[in-house]
């Protein structure tokens, strides 16, 4: 019997809150200071950068991917605690950012930053209708939540396609998109050892790379693609290590059961990435100009 893991993906607000609304202090105790809760970026396995440095490299990678620069207005779908938006504004001179999240605690945290150049909305991207177009879109660690395990492949691809169409619409057909998502690796390959099991990411309905290619076809060109699964394994290991160190402190306020559940989940995830069961994709999309479409 497997205990229920903290992730129940499926795009519902309830599922998102189940995972993310367990307290900002809890996440702050083991995430790096930027509160980036997604895969960091190292420069190969010999790169000895700290987790915090590798997170900064990741944030800058996505900023550069969309050509972030002065005066730009950028949308962050699944903004978490705002690390990507702060990088875009503070390090690249973007004029303003809008962040979408379904987590009330994340939204409260971002609002608590008290920044006029950041607007955070508790809105599903399906329902998002901006007043003015954006210059670019970033989305890190949100795509995993878009589809539901009960949906067919066609239904899932239709949702992904709607997301890509929305990105085009939000940018008036001209903005690039930098996407980071977990995807299936060998996990569907049927030769899985039961020991490593089906219970890594049990409720997740992750995309495959093929889903993404098919869903974005004719809308965007994929102009850069990285598979950095080993970076995610390393990130999860670093988080697990930090969480455990925090739990060992005599005066740690972390709830034991919650801490152990997350520790187990992080280590399972680290294994899943290390073994290629799941992969981590970073993809740059350039819009196909309307005249070239069809």
């Amino acid at each position: 019997m497997s205990p229920s893991l903290p992730v129940e993906l499926g795009g519902s607000a309830e599922a998102i809150r189940h995972h993310y609304d367990v307290g900002n202090d809890f996440f702050a105790s083991w995430l790096d200071p930027s509160m980036a809760y997604s895969c960091a970026l190292w420069d190969g396995k010999d790169d000895e950068s700290s987790l915090a440095e590798a997170q900064i490299r990741k944030l800058r990678y996505h900023a550069e991917s969309v050509g972030a620069g002065p005066g730009m207005r950028i949308l962050d779908v699944g903004c978490g605690w705002g690390a990507q938006m702060r990088t875009l504004l503070d390090d690249y001179g973007a004029a303003s950012c809008v962040g979408l999240t379904l987590s009330e605690e994340q939204a409260a945290y971002v609002r608590g930053l008290g920044r006029e150049d950041i607007s955070v909305q508790i809105t599903n991207w399906h329902d998002f209708a901006p007043e003015a177009p954006f210059d670019a879109v970033v989305s890190i660690g949100a795509f995993e939540h878009f589809a539901h395990p009960k949906q067919s492949q066609d239904e899932r691809r239709a949702i992904y396609r709607r997301f890509f169409e929305s990105c085009l619409r939000w940018t008036g057909g001209h903005g690039p998109l930098s996407l980071q998502t977990i995807a299936y690796g060998t996990m569907e390959a049927g030769d899985a050892n039961p020991f490593i099991a089906d219970d890594i990411f049990p409720a997740a309905e992750l995309p495959t790379l093929e889903d993404i290619v098919v869903a974005s076809h004719g809308l965007f060109r994929i102009t850069r693609l990285r598979d950095d699964g080993m970076d995610y394994s390393r990130t999860c290991q670093a988080w697990a290590q930090r969480l455990r160190a925090e739990m060992r402190r005599a005066d740690s306020p972390i709830d034991r059961e919650l801490g152990e559940r997350y520790h187990r989940y992080l280590r399972l995830s680290a294994a899943g990435f290390a073994m290629g069961k799941v992969v981590l994709l970073r993809i740059r999309f350039d819009p196909i100009a309307p005249s070239g479409r069809g």
Binding site: S2, P3, F195, A197, D199, A240, Q241, R264, A274
Partner: peptide, 24 residues
């Protein structure tokens, strides 16, 4: 299963008194 595997390695680390996790 994998969950029991993770619990096993965590228990092993506790038994060994390790500060740093073992690679799973």
């Amino acid at each position: 299963d994998s969950v029991q595997g993770v619990d096993m390695i965590t228990a092993l680390e506790d038994w060994l008194g390790l500060e740093d996790d073992l690679p799973i």
